[in-house]
């Protein structure tokens, strides 16, 4: 194979030679994302009633949370609204401890934090959310959790502050 020699020993050369970089600075791409009819229902229930809802597939019976219009496997439109619990079970989890830029702000996201894939009781699909624990030794797959709602709610996933681990 014809390998390229460029790039060899570059690291050493860089120290001696200026290489200009152009910075994007404060540039950003603003968006106005619509939550759609299904997402809006879910989020307005969170905001107004501190309640989770899903939709049931008429074909396979799966309850989708958050709701969506189409069941992928069945390719059927979903219409039946189903209330689901604000309690559930940890399917899997992690505790994030490395630094990274939050693309929604352009700033470093505060770490550490724990988050989980959570199955709400009555739902067949799962949601992601924060946990109130950052010690992985204290979190278990299968642990019971309950949503803790924010005082001020605006119609976003963050209307739930986090899920609290329910200790026996």
């Amino acid at each position: 194979m014809a390998g390229e020699k460029n790039g060899e020993g570059k690291e050493a050369k860089e120290e001696r030679k200026e290489l200009i970089k152009l910075e994007s600075g404060e540039a950003e791409q603003p968006f106005r994302w619509s939550a759609g009819t299904y997402g809006s229902r879910f989020l307005s229930e969170l905001r107004d009633n501190c309640r989770f809802v899903g939709v049931r597939c008429p074909c396979c019976g799966r309850v989708y949370v958050p709701p969506r219009r189409v069941c992928g496997p069945c390719f059927r439109e979903l219409t039946e609204l189903v209330p689901v619990s604000d309690e559930g079970e940890v399917i899997t989890f992690t505790v994030v401890s490395f630094g990274f830029v939050d693309p929604s702000t352009g700033r470093q996201k505060p770490v550490p934090y724990g988050y989980a894939v959570i199955k709400l009781d009555g739902a067949d699909t799962y949601i992601l959310h924060y946990l109130d624990e950052t010690d992985p030794g204290k979190i278990k797959v299968g642990a019971r959790v309950k949503a803790v709602f924010a005082e001020e709610r605006s119609g976003s996933m963050l209307d739930v502050k986090h899920f609290a681990l329910l200790r026996a």
């Binding site: 968006f31 994302w33 939550a35 997402g39 989020l43 958050p66 992690t94 994030v96 490395f98 990274f100 693309p103 929604s104 996201k109 988050y115 949601i127 992601l128 959310h129 924060y130 976003s156 996933m157 963050l158």
Partner: peptide, 14 residues
């Protein structure tokens, strides 16, 4: 997804 995942998700590593 900006609504469901993005506020919480921490990229590929997490």
């Amino acid at each position: 997804d900006p609504f469901w995942d993005r506020p919480i998700f921490a990229g590929a590593v997490a």
